[in-house]
Design a protein around this nucleic acid. Structure first.
Length: 596
RNA sequence: GCCGGGGUAGCUCAACGGUAGAGCAAUCGCUUCGUAAGCGAUAGGUUGAGGGUUCGAAACCCUUCCCCGGCUCCA
């Protein structure tokens, strides 16, 4: 007899899942009562909440959610127990067929040989493997969030169902916190902030998924790229450049014409030959490697490029800077001997950690994806190479004491990898850096080097991206800082605000001295009141304001105001310059006058 | 691509079958002011685009483009 989840620890993952899954059942009941004829499918607990997929004549809209919520509360307040019972597959089938629940009948057909259980609360019964609270009274702190389409069993060949998402928590405080986080996430949405701060735009005339970097965003990108290039050179990378387009023959050789076809833009015909935009930089770096015979003495060879690639993404998946059709990868390919793979992986991880630290990300998680040894024939490359590579990936993380999750069987066909997910300022995680082996392309292109014994050998290839995509990384940064960039990244660092036109000349002179000290400065000489200038500059998220009035000019000191509202009066110009140049050089989120 | 919801001035929104409006931003003028919006004037729109219905369409219908929430995949 299945038993409900005991309530001793309401914060355990088991209990949270039970609560959310129970919530899904109650929602299904509410929906069926309010919209008779709606068929139920599945309703699992997910991270932070739950959903249930329905099929029925009524198209749900956001306006239906309050109604459904109200009905759910009524049901929950009935204090109904969740009662599970085992049932014979035959009886279960009859039960669901009698109700016309064809999806349940289909699920049942896939459960052959397993114990079948039904869970009932109040008047509602579901085919379900269990994991519920004892009673509906546990369901108190929940909200329905959105309606969406979803394919039955996630397959786009199947009918489209209607999904309702909700969130549920053991305490009111947790629900409030979660709703607050969603609100905060919405307020710092890069699609809103980016155009508002005049950083970038997407232009309908040019096409969706293509990014226009405005002067301010462009300035930031320049800083990010310069930092990355300088760091790469220090770490023994060599910068290269490659074309944006290539003859389809290259993509035939690389195999992209077959395994990556659906993400590539269609052919462009040029003088009887067909060309295609590059979706990846790898084959180009390989051609550079292959341009002449290589010696083991040249390895490891680390070729890096800020390479712009174009991928055809279906219109429905485009999302601001995070999912686009043209983007620039900070891409590198390391060609090396088997002896150096661990050192090379370690170098990549070290570089990645340096990126996170520099950009103010303190938390991250790592995942190692390995092959499924049972399916050896689907993978490219030699078994021994796979095993050595997987050992190297894990060894590096172990030696560095970095915790990671091992996902066996998740590797792509061409090689095992480490994926890094960043946790941002409000706790969301983002897939970012990746370090992956590629055993496929060196084979396809027949790459070689001459070993110390004179034999021709195949180099190993490591693909690595740290920002991942410059666009995507920029979008994540924008949301992480909510537009309040640390000084070194801020497109405009200091603005001098004048009180009257008497200060125009001193303000211009001060701006020139700030610029001479390497700071990005501007003046606001408009005939507005100081309050209006402060407001505009604060909304522009400029880190520092210098408010220059007659008293300051007379005293020969400065009034410094930060975008967070803190103020420092009587600051000498030399102190200001010293503090700002230091803050600029430190590249950290805290300000020269303390924490932001 | 698919399901659902949307596109009205640079932005936020109103008008919802009967002359397309407001606030902010912009421009010009006045104001020369001490810490988050000074005052006035001006300008700004084939209501995403194309077609249809109607005496009359921003509104109703069709097509199309783009955006939003998801599905699938990933950077």
């Amino acid at each position: 007899m299945p038993t409900p989840v005991a309530v001793q620890d309401v914060q355990s993952q088991e209990y949270l899942d039970a609560l959310r899954h129970s919530c899904a059942h109650v929602m299904a009941q509410a929906v069926q009562e309010l919209f008779p004829g709606t068929k139920i499918t599945i309703g699992p607990a997910i991270e932070n909440g739950f959903y249930y997929d329905f099929d029925g004549p009524h198209a749900f809209t956001e306006d239906d959610l309050p109604k459904i919520e109200k009905k759910m509360r009524q049901i929950a307040e009935g204090n109904h127990s969740f009662i599970g019972r085992e049932i014979s597959p035959e009886d279960s089938r009859k039960y669901w067929e009698a109700r016309g629940e064809k999806y349940k009948v289909e699920i049942l057909a896939g459960l052959e040989g397993q114990t079948v259980t039904h869970y009932t609360h109040d008047t509602f019964t579901d085919l379900c493997r269990g994991g519920h609270t004892e009673n509906t009274k546990a369901i108190r702190h929940f909200r329905l969030l959105s309606v969406a389409g979803a394919y039955w069993r996630g397959d786009e060949k199947n009918p489209m169902l209607q999904r309702i998402y909700g969130t549920a928590w053991p305490t009111k405080q947790q629900l409030d916190d979660y709703m607050q986080m969603l609100k905060e996430a919405k307020s710092r949405d890069h699609r809103k902030l980016g155009p508002a701060l005049d950083l970038f735009s997407i232009q309908e005339l040019a096409g969706p998924g293509l990014i226009f970097w405005h002067p301010k965003g462009g300035r930031m990108r320049l800083i990010m790229e310069d930092w990355l290039r300088a760091e790469a050179l220090k770490r023994g990378y060599q910068m290269v450049y490659s074309p944006h387009i290539a003859n389809v023959a290259l993509w035939e050789t690389s195999g992209h014409r077959s395994f990556y076809k659906e993400n590539m833009f269609t052919e462009i015909s040029v003088e009887k030959a067909d060309y295609q935009l590059k979706p990846m930089n790898c084959p180009f770096h390989i051609l550079i490697y292959q341009s002449r015979l290589r010696s083991y003495r040249e390895l490891p060879m680390r070729l890096a490029e800020l390479g712009t690639v174009y991928r055809y993404e279906r219109s429905g998946v485009l999302h601001g800077l995070l999912r686009v059709r043209g983007f620039t990868q900070d891409d590198a390919h390391i060609f090396c001997t088997p002896e150096s793979i661990e050192a090379e992986v370690d170098g990549c991880i070290d570089f990645a950690l340096s990126v996170f630290k520099t950009y103010g990300f303190e938390r991250y998680t790592m995942e190692v994806s390995t092959w499924d040894p049972a399916k050896k024939d689907v993978y490219s490359g030699e078994a021994a190479d796979w095993e050595a590579a997987q050992r190297a990936l894990e060894a590096v993380l172990k030696k560095r004491g970095i915790p990671y999750r091992l996902i066996a069987g998740e590797a792509a066909f061409y090689g095992p990898k480490i994926d890094v997910k960043l946790i941002d300022a409000i706790g969301r995680s983002w897939q970012l850096s990746t370090v992956q082996f590629d055993f496929n392309l060196p084979q396809k292109f027949n790459l070689e080097y001459i070993a110390s014994d004179g034999a021709r050998k195949r180099p190993l290839m490591v693909h690595r991206a740290l920002y991942g995509s410059v666009e995507r990384f920029f979008g994540i940064l924008l949301e992480h800082y909510a537009g309040n960039f640390p000084l070194w990244l801020a497109p405009l660092q200091v603005k001098v605000l004048t009180l009257t036109e008497e200060q125009d000349a001193p303000a211009e002179a001060l701006k020139a001295r700030l610029e001479a000290a390497g700071l990005r400065a501007a003046v606001d000489l408009r005939g507005e009141k100081i309050g209006a200038k402060i407001r505009d500059t604060t909304l522009e998220k400029v880190p520092y304001m210098i408010i220059l009035g007659p008293k300051d000019v007379a005293a020969g000191t400065l009034a410094v105001r930060l975008r967070d509202g803190r103020q420092f009066f009587g600051v000498s110009e030399s102190e200001l310059l010293a503090r700002l140049t230091q803050e600029n050089a430190e590249k950290q989120p805290r300000t020269a006058w303390g924490e932001a």
